[in-house]
Design a protein around this nucleic acid. Structure first.
Length: 397
RNA sequence: GCGCAGGUGGCGGAGUGGUCAAUCGCAACAGACUGUAAAUCUGUCGCCCAUUGGGCUACGAAGGUUCGAAUCCUUCCCUGCGCA
């Protein structure tokens, strides 16, 4: 596997860098925000619109596509991109995150970020749908309860069938509530799984056309020793790039990412998994990440939260009923150029499907543009200044 | 005019002597959402103070029975259906 990544510029004083990842379906100029299209669709947004808002790649999910419509179907369709009508680069997550979301997090209000305040609300216990052992993970389908088993090998096989340009090693994503001991155990297991993922990838000829890039995933939670150990181990295994996975406390994310990126090989791309609020993206870039995927822009958009330069607004609020200005004045997205806050308010109020589409388009464009601007700033050598200017305006309302 | 069925919080609709400021749904108001179990979830939702809690006014209106009434009785008003 030749190197498919080159750095165009990097800044002094931070780990931020601008580069290009070459894939079989085109280049990704980094840093880049990658929208999530779990089930081979970025919810509510057409591929055409994704192109217009200058999305560079889409990330789908192995677990979901495996359950529906199944890897065989995707393979006969000519691969993920062709199937979904998206002709740019694609990625698939390995299913490792579902170890968490269907496991420890199942039935609880738990996200990638831990809560420093123990909001110990009594949460009704529900049986997890995922169980980890050293060999792999046994899942129960969230759709029909049927039992399925993922191993690192199986995940890679499925990802080969799905055919995304960048695929990920199968990992265990532990809960933010787990302690150092368990984080170590999960990390070590993830390392073993990484080697197995890599081995299976090679056996299969590195992708059907030999052109799938495999990224290894760093774990270690919020613990510095584990993060560094994981970065070192995964970094030496010979992956085409890296994913930074796992969970942390909100305020520790920047550190966790920095610990890792100080040690990962500089000449390979680093993808921060599942991060994507505007502030977090800037922190990630500053600390050396090249790409990030996140459901936040689309999920928030679908549920009425709109990103603006001054922070997030909830468009359903009564105060927007007669606000005939754009969602964000000066925004170059389709939604802002053609519709008003009052109209979006009405669409949400009326539960119209177009609400989700227009809001998702805006939020995606907002964050894609933020990252585009960050890239330009890196190239100019002014990332720090750019970031500070953005932060000074972007207040959490 | 007679007969029957009804009148409950913004709306729909439970409740038919005490644990009822009143199930539930909708609407309203607000919040959350970070590798998507998500076009989802949570909270508030008579009025006034309060942290747990307390006070007040309420189930068409007015009287009455009862220790106690949204629930029982009387009269009145209104609505729907049927018959004249």
């Amino acid at each position: 596997m030749g190197n498919s990544f080159r750095i165009e510029s990097s800044t002094d004083g931070s780990l931020a860098r601008a580069g290009v990842i070459e894939t079989a379906h085109g280049a990704i100029e980094t840093p880049a925000f990658i929208p999530v299209g779990t089930k081979a669709t970025v919810k509510a947004v057409t591929p055409e619109a994704l192109g217009t808002l200058r999305t560079q790649a889409v990330l789908a999910n192995t677990y979901h596509l495996y359950l529906q419509p199944g890897p065989e179907l995707l393979e006969s369709a000519g691969g993920l991109g062709k199937f979904m009508g998206w002709h740019g680069p694609t990625m698939t997550d390995s299913g490792g995150f579902q170890v968490f979301s269907l496991g420890a997090a199942f039935g609880k209000r738990l996200s990638k970020f831990g809560n420093r305040k123990e909001e110990s609300e009594k949460i009704e216990e529900s049986l997890p749908l995922a169980k980890v052992d050293d060999e792999g993970v046994t899942f129960r389908s969230h759709r029909d309860g049927s039992e399925h088993r993922f191993t690192p090998e199986r995940s890679i096989e499925i990802q080969h069938a799905i055919g995304a340009d960048i695929i990920f090693a199968f990992d265990e994503c532990p809960s933010p509530e787990t302690d150092h001991d368990y984080q170590r155990e999960a990390m070590e297991r993830t390392h073993r799984w990484a080697l197995r993922s890599l081995a299976r990838h090679k056996e299969l000829g590195e992708g059907s056309a030999g052109d799938q890039l495999l990224f290894g995933i760093v774990q270690g939670g919020r613990f510095e020793d584990l993060r560094r150990e994981s970065a070192k181990a995964i970094g030496e295994m010979g992956f085409d790039g890296f994913g930074i996975g796992g969970t942390f406390l909100k305020e520790d994310m920047g550190n966790a990412v920095r610990w890792v990126n100080e040690l990962l090989p500089k000449d390979k791309p680093r993808h921060l998994l599942g991060i994507g609020e505007p502030l977090d993206v800037l922190i990630a870039i500053e600390n050396g990440c090249d790409t990030f995927d996140c459901v936040a822009p689309t999920r928030a958009g679908r549920t009425g939260t709109i990103y603006t330069g001054e922070g997030k607004i909830n468009i359903g609020n009564a105060k927007f009923e007669k606000d005939f200005s754009a969602l964000e004045v000066g925004c170059d997205c389709y939604t802002c150029k053609n519709f008003t806050r009052a109209y979006l308010h009405h669409l949400f109020d009326a539960h119209e499907m177009l609400a989700a589409t227009l809001a998702s388009i805006h939020n995606l464009r907002f964050i894609v543009r933020l990252v585009e601007n960050a890239r330009e700033a890196i190239v100019r050598g002014e990332f720090k200044k750019f970031s500070e200017e953005f932060l000074s305006r972007y207040i959490k309302i």
